[in-house]
Amino acid sequence: MTQSQMTPAPTQQMQECIEACMSCHSMCEETMSSCMQKGGGQQQMQIMRALLDCTEMTRMCADMMMRRSPMSAEMCMLCAKVCDMCAEACMSMPDDQQMMRCAEACRRCAQTCRAMAGAGM
């Protein structure tokens, strides 16, 4: 039995969600690096916690979809919530272009994850 016979190819919707998760993961990592270079106070620390949560969740969500975990739908729903929280945190610094790009990546990921969760995989 070949690998393709054991595991069906990902649907277009799943592939888009995996890509959105990985793109969001990368953007949050870049944004965290930018935050660390700037330093900052309590607000910056709250944003960094949100970014860290989002990087971990998006990576795990993509991994679970790729291996067809039976928990993927639930993970996608949780990932959408974490991405929404991260987008809100980034939006608290509207003058920072990196934060705005990150918020956009988080919103796109949340949207695709909600769609995947609704699809029932």
Rank of each mutant, 00 (worst) to 15 (best):
G40S: 07
E74Q: 15
A73G: 13
M65W: 00
S4R: 00
D96Y: 01
C113M: 05
M57F: 10
T2Q: 02
L78Y: 08
A115Y: 07
V82Y: 04
A103I: 09
P10I: 11
R101Y: 00
A50G: 06
Q97R: 05
C54A: 11
S34D: 14
S72V: 04
T2C: 02
T58M: 07
M66W: 06
G40R: 06
C21L: 04
C35D: 11
R49V: 11
S33I: 04
I18G: 08
C113R: 02
R59S: 15
M77C: 07
M100W: 01
Q13V: 02
L52Q: 13
I47T: 14
C113Q: 07
A103K: 03
Q13S: 04
R108C: 05
R101I: 00
G120V: 00
T7G: 01
M22K: 15
Q98P: 05
C102K: 02
Q98A: 11
H25D: 13
M32S: 13
G40M: 01
M75I: 13
E74Y: 08
P8F: 03
T31D: 04
A115D: 10
M14V: 07
C28D: 13
M1W: 02
K81E: 14
Q12K: 01
C83T: 03
S34R: 03
C90W: 11
C79G: 00
M22S: 09
C28Q: 03
M14E: 15
T112K: 14
M85S: 11
Q46A: 14
A80K: 08
S72T: 12
P10K: 09
S4E: 06
E30P: 00
M66E: 15
Q5Y: 08
M36W: 15
Q3S: 01
E29A: 00
G118V: 01
T2E: 08
R108K: 12
S26V: 11
T58V: 10
D84F: 04
H25E: 15
C54Q: 09
A20K: 09
M22P: 03
Q44R: 12
A110I: 08
M60I: 10
Q98N: 10
E88A: 13
E16C: 00
Q111F: 02
M93I: 12
M121E: 02
C24E: 15
L51T: 15
C86G: 08
A20H: 09
S72M: 11
M60S: 11
M14C: 06
Q46C: 06
L52W: 08
A50D: 07
A20M: 13
E56Y: 07
K81R: 07
C21A: 02
C54T: 12
A103G: 07
E16F: 00
C109W: 04
D53Y: 10
M60Y: 09
Q111H: 03
A105M: 13
M45Q: 15
A73N: 12
Q5I: 07
C106Y: 01
G39Y: 07
D84T: 07
Q44T: 15
H25K: 05
A62C: 12
S69F: 09
E30T: 08
A110H: 01
I47E: 10
R108D: 10
M27G: 00
A117C: 03
A115Q: 13
S69H: 07
S34H: 13
A87N: 00
